[in-house]
């Protein structure tokens, strides 16, 4: 499953990127899909098991997390 992690600021995106990369989680920084609303222009795209994200990032560090099945975006509780 593909997930989009949305943040409030570029600073927060980069902070999360640093943590995830340090833990060797394969992620990509991408522009926030235009059909989503976000405070920040960039977000983290992740393809895999969301449980690893749950262990490394705290929900308070994030705006929201959405899953994407190729058609719909659904909110995910972290």
């Amino acid at each position: 499953m593909i997930y989009y992690l949305l943040f409030f600021t570029t600073h927060d995106v980069l902070k999360a990127e640093k943590v995830l990369k340090k833990n060797k989680v394969a992620i990509e920084l991408v522009p926030v899909p235009r059909n989503l609303s976000s405070d920040c222009g960039m977000c983290i795209k992740f393809d895999g098991d969301i449980s690893i994200i749950k262990t490394l990032l705290h929900p308070s560090e994030m705006d929201k997390c959405l899953s994407y099945d190729g058609k719909d975006y659904k909110p995910v509780n972290l």
Binding site: F8, T9, T10, D39, G41
Partner: peptide
């Protein structure tokens, strides 16, 4: 005050 690249809406 002005652009920050965030919350652009």
């Amino acid at each position: 005050f002005g652009g920050t690249g965030s919350k652009s809406e």
